[in-house]
Design a protein around this nucleic acid. Structure first.
Lengths: 215, 215
DNA sequence: ATGGGTGCGATGTGATCACAAACCGGGTCA
DNA sequence: TGACCCGGTTTGTGATCACATCGCACCCAT
């Protein structure tokens, strides 16, 4: 009766457009500063301008897109200060999410995380930066889902969304030859039930990428 | 040239509608579960359905409004678990904001906070719950503006927005006869440059209201 | 009298259109 | 040669319309 957790049986045109754009942005498939047009988005998703505009407005509200003064829409090119803020937000929220997930982390979850981490290694080896970002986010989301904190998770995803295009630039320029080793620390802390260690590992993993950009 | 921090010289119809609704929601002028209609919103702000729909979509994206399965829009009626999450988010983000504002807090800021706190007392005495919520938020925003962290502040305001209608219910039912005394602790810690004290005071102030609801 | 079906009004959705502003050329003149 | 102007084109905005869906109340049959 009140269970509306169903993912929506008939996705509206607006929702398809929104989800499509959102995924592309979050996974870093669009470079910072790239300009989009409503008619172009509409044509791409087979809808008219109206749903395209709603999807764009929604993404602007979430900080995934930037609206210039004349209404032109583009992916944002973040300043270093803003990147630092967003990294700090990631750290704050995700450390809390990990901490809440810890007591509920069964062995099945840890196995799944290890499997995802293996996929990340594959992505690194094949130099698939989009796949790397997507799988890395899947690693974090899988862990945080156990926290049973949907509002916090939504907040964290909003931050990921804002960092999407920048992550593309970041991981594009860094010589990456191995999966993030802090993921192993996270898994180890989960196994040991070590909360301080988990918090430190998550914080380190989240803020490691930042150092590449602002220095 | 690139300075588009100007608050927008000609507010569009969509923006007026959005801001109007947002203010009313954040200040607790609408009770939880109240239903709105696009045509009603349009008539109220003198615009057509299109800008009204965009404003609603934006507010839904920010969690300020809830979209039922059939597309009907209403202010959300939050569960206790969600309220706890949002309170925890407020605590995480606002403690960080206060901490970042501390080194930049001059005497003029402290004076201004004390003045706002006086206004809060007035609001309490006149039983103006909307005015109370508005002035209380002004107190926090004035402090956090000094942190020079716009992304974090935006995140905090999003949380306020989601809690708006619930705050109305909360402050409506509590017998309140004095301004929140943790505000005095905040001001004292600012004066003393006491960061741990400030963090504790902010955390206490933010989570105090929660206890009224979930118990 | 009451339960269920039916039709009308209200509501959200998406497409289309008219319009204004912005952008991007080329062409012209100093 | 270079800067400036100007017109065509692109783009966002907001209004309006047609339509599907939902809710609700009224009415009829049992």
């Amino acid at each position: 009766m009140l269970i509306n957790t169903r993912p929506d049986p008939s996705p509206s045109a607006h929702d398809r457009t929104y989800r499509g754009l959102r995924t592309r942005i979050m996974h870093g498939e669009i470079e910072p500063g790239f300009a989009l047009t409503l008619r172009g988005i509409g044509k791409e998703f087979g809808v008219s301008m109206t749903p395209a505009r709603e999807a764009v407005r929604r993404l602007v509200a979430e900080g995934a897109l930037s609206l210039s003064s004349s209404g032109r829409v583009a992916t944002p090119d973040l300043s270093n200060e803003r990147i630092e803020e967003l990294a700090a937000l990631r750290s704050l929220i995700e450390v809390e999410l990990a901490s809440r997930a810890l007591p509920r982390a069964h062995m099945a979850l840890i196995d799944r995380l290890q499997m995802i981490n293996g996929t990340i290694t594959t992505m690194v080896e094949t130099h698939d930066s989009v796949g790397y970002i997507r799988t890395n986010l899947e690693f974090h989301r899988t862990l945080y889902l156990r926290a049973q904190a949907p509002a916090m998770l939504a907040m964290a995803e909003t931050v990921w969304l804002q960092l999407g295009p920048t992550m593309r630039k970041l991981y594009g320029k860094m010589r990456r030859n191995e999966a993030p080793h802090f993921h192993r620390h996270i898994i180890a802390a989960l196994k040991a039930g070590d909360e301080p260690g988990l918090r430190l590992a998550v914080r380190s993993d989240v803020t490691q990428g930042l150092r590449m950009l602002t220095t």
